[in-house]
Design a protein around this nucleic acid. Structure first.
Ligand SMILES: [Zn+2]
Ligand SMILES: [Zn+2]
Ligand SMILES: [Zn+2]
Ligand SMILES: [Zn+2]
Lengths: 155, 155
DNA sequence: AAACGTTATGTTATAGTATATCATCTTCTT
DNA sequence: AAGAAGATGATATACTATAACATAACGTTT
């Protein structure tokens, strides 16, 4: 269990930029704005919510269609994760981490959309896989998502 | 591990009817049609797909809004499960079972929407819960859904 | 600098999922 | 027959998402 640095928006942006440039891709101004929105709000947001964020907090008009494309790009760079269950998007919480990005699991608060990115024990995943294979199915991805309530939103 | 009877549409409908009447609710003609659609197609369907099913196979016009209400009713009677991940609905595969309905887990084929309703070992759920609580979250429900590929749809 | 190809963004159209509201019809009870 | 409760129909609307085409910005080559 390695200690996890809480990431600041500016720090993560900087790291994201150097990551992109080292890969020959560009973290443009618009892409920075979307990533900033996710980093700042500290929770999962929809594409349309990000459009609103850019308008309200950054004074930048960014149509939802552009946001979708940008999210796709950021996901490809492992800077953002798409949460199917919540139909929202969240900044990766390990942008500043050196270590390789394992397949993550997400705990998503149904009430406030706070997201915790965790790594479930491999043994647990293995026995889950076993259950699934016992039913002649195969997990499509080991990126699992769980509907949860966070500390602040318990009933 | 109790053997699981494969359920026929007619058998399940009959059981569903007596179940409803024993609870003072009514399994109307329209509700039967929707349940029939799910039982017959043997996979998860959306509300709009069920509208199409009723039109094409039963010669009955059933607006999607009605289907939504009916699905809500059927879910309340534990005859149907709503799958958030797939945004579709599936007939419970235990309508004919005597035993109480445990909290189910679903394996959903991303390609063909075949669904397997399984019961994961309690010990596995327990250690999952432990991981989740370790992150100060709580599972919103123990009805878990997993994106999968079925036997027929492996790459 | 000019031309070109590539990448990024803008714009519009459209599909799919879902909920809210009000109106109508059916069923059951009295 | 009247009234209440339940079920269905109809319409409006919101949100999520993708496709297709047009324009703009950027980088490279000449
Ligand atoms: Zn991550
Ligand atoms: Zn919360
Ligand atoms: Zn079931
Ligand atoms: Zn399949």
């Amino acid at each position: 269990m390695s200690a996890h640095k809480a990431q600041t928006t500016s720090g993560a942006l900087k790291q994201a930029e150097s990551l992109c440039s080292s890969r020959g891709t560009r973290l443009t101004e618009k892409r920075k704005q979307v990533l900033t929105g996710l980093l700042e709000s500290q929770k999962a947001l929809s594409a349309y919510e990000l459009t609103a964020y850019c308008r309200n907090h950054l004074g930048s008009e960014l149509p939802a269609m552009s946001v979708y494309r940008i999210l796709e790009f950021l996901e490809g760079e492992s800077l953002v994760h798409r949460l199917d269950l919540a139909k929202k998007y969240v900044a990766c919480s390990h942008i500043l981490c050196e270590h390789k990005h394992e397949l993550p699991q997400f705990l998503i608060c149904k009430a406030c959309y706070k997201v915790q990115e965790i790594s479930i024990k491999k043994s647990l995943i293995d026995s889950l896989n076993q259950s699934v294979e016992g039913a002649s199915f195969r997990l499509a991805s080991q990126q699992l998502e769980f509907d949860c309530f966070c500390e602040d939103c318990y009933e």
